[in-house]
Nucleic acid binder design. Structure first.
Length: 417
RNA sequence: GUGGUCGUAGCUCAAUGGUAGAGCCCCAGAUUGUGGUUCUGGUUGUUGCGGGUUCGAGUCCCGUCGGCCACCCCA
């Protein structure tokens, strides 16, 4: 029995898990760069106040927070957006607008874990700052779709549900509802799918009838139409559904909001985001003001969906397998040749080949087995043939003798990496 | 935070209240320096932990920790 284990909700990444994670990160990075986004990072630990301040009280109860040795109230970041807002406010004039920034990092929350929901996870965040035009919303949703597509998913596998908070705030204004109640009503609409209809009606009171009528009709707006038109021009309209039931829990969203789900409805949201035009101004106490929008995509649900989707799973399997293989394994058949082998190993590694060899004397049969296990395509045997080396192509079992000093040239000609 | 359910070897799982097992993995062999198959042998457990009932507990009871599921909440 091992005494120490990881804390609940925290993961160990064994090599295969790490390879899968790196694969996800690589796709995220690759597609974000295709869209002209640049990478940045913020601190993992932030003052608790940053999250208490304006992002809605609902998040505070789930913070992984504590008091540090300097008596500061701090929290492991649960999300990136407040940090981004702070950074943008502090460096507002240093960059031309719009900013297109992305970040990959670890985020934390303190709550009971269950499937798809740990106390720690990795997230991609993509944000556009300094652009009010709907074109920015189209760009962001397009990027989100293309990132999911990059893993081999199609419109049969996932859907982006798009909504607009302004659709609801316009409605509430038309109903002459006091703005203090808006957040509470939006929360109720957000919960609509998860709560019994009677409870919703009770909470909405006189609004229940018009709200339910809108939902049964589907809800439409000129802005949402234009958004979908823009995505259609990109050829991405098949990936989206307008669905005004999407509101999102965070209070800081102000306009378009969206969430990505698997079509089968088996998992939690894969990604989510929206427009938060007032947050930067709020967090900076008015010293900076920038419209902004962004989304986040986590590694946990995405990873589960990749694992359960044949095409995506195979693509990842293939990519990670290649990544973990070595190119060349050195078989030391005679210990007298170890020094010669080491000299060549150094040369090969300098040239960029992935090379491994037995650290202790061992049977030749076992060494070939190890070469196979490590995924080498070629084995070099150092033994009685010296100063020649036996070059064996493992897949075909073909062997040729090559003089050791001609080995580099020989491999360059015969081993394509 | 609340409720339900589960916890046996590194992994997947067996064991009517009566001496804890199998498969896989791993390790070592099968006449001198050649790998994916095969054969032989071998290692591994305070049955999550702590109490209790019993002649006797992996099995029943209580507590605790951990996993899973639902609720809460959702970045």
């Amino acid at each position: 029995m091992i005494a120490m284990q990881a804390l609940p909700g925290f993961r160990d990444f064994l090599p295969s898990d790490c390879a899968a994670r790196n694969y996800i990160f690589a796709k995220w990075r690759e597609v974000a760069r295709r869209y002209g986004f640049v990478e940045w990072e913020g601190p993992v630990l932030e003052p608790t106040e940053l999250y208490k301040k304006k992002s809605g009280d609902e998040i505070v109860g789930q913070l992984f927070n504590f008091t540090d040795k300097g008596q500061r109230e701090v929290a492991l970041r649960p999300e990136l957006t407040p940090s981004l807002a702070r950074v943008v406010a502090a460096h507002e004039r240093e960059f031309k607008k719009p900013l297109k920034w992305f970040s990959i990092g670890q985020f934390f929350r303190y709550e009971k874990q269950q499937r798809g929901r740990l106390r720690e996870h990795f997230q991609l965040n993509c944000d556009i700052v300094g652009e009010t035009a709907l074109a920015a919303d189209i760009e962001l949703v397009s990027l989100c779709i293309d990132i999911v597509r990059a893993f081999g998913f199609t419109e049969r596998d996932f859907v982006v549900r798009i909504s607009d908070r302004e659709f609801w705030t316009d409605f509430l204004r038309s109903q002459e509802i006091a703005s203090e109640r808006w957040d509470e009503i939006l929360q109720t609409i957000d919960k609509l799918g998860r709560e019994p209809r009677e409870k919703t009606s009770e909470k909405l009171g006189q609004l229940a009838e018009p709200v339910l009528r809108i939902l049964s009709k589907g809800g439409k707006s000129e802005k949402l139409d234009r958004l979908v038109d823009g995505l259609r021009a990109c050829g991405l309209a098949n990936f989206v559904d307008v669905d005004v039931r999407i509101v999102r829990g965070l209070a800081y969203y102000t306009g378009i909001v969206f969430e990505v789900f698997d079509r089968a409805g088996k998992f939690r949201a894969i990604a989510g985001g929206g427009r938060y035009d007032n947050l930067i101004e709020q967090l900076s106490d008015g010293s900076a003001s920038q419209p902004a929008l962004g989304f986040a995509m986590g590694d946990v649900v995405l990873g589960e969906l990749i694992g359960e989707t044949a095409t995506a799973g195979e693509a990842m399997e293939k990519a990670t397998a290649v990544e973990q293989k070595i190119n060349i394994y050195i078989v030391i058949a005679k210990e007298e040749r170890r020094a010669d082998a080491l000299g060549q190993i150094q040369q090969l590694r300098d040239r960029g080949y992935r090379v491994d060899y037995p650290l202790t004397p061992g049977k030749v049969a076992r060494q070939f087995q190890t070469a196979e296990d490590l995924g080498a395509s070629i084995a070099l045997l150092y033994g009685d043939e010296w100063p020649q080396v036996k070059v064996k192509t493992l897949a075909t079992r073909e062997e040729t003798l090559v003089a050791n000093e001609e080995l580099l040239a020989h491999l360059q000609a015969h081993l394509s990496l």
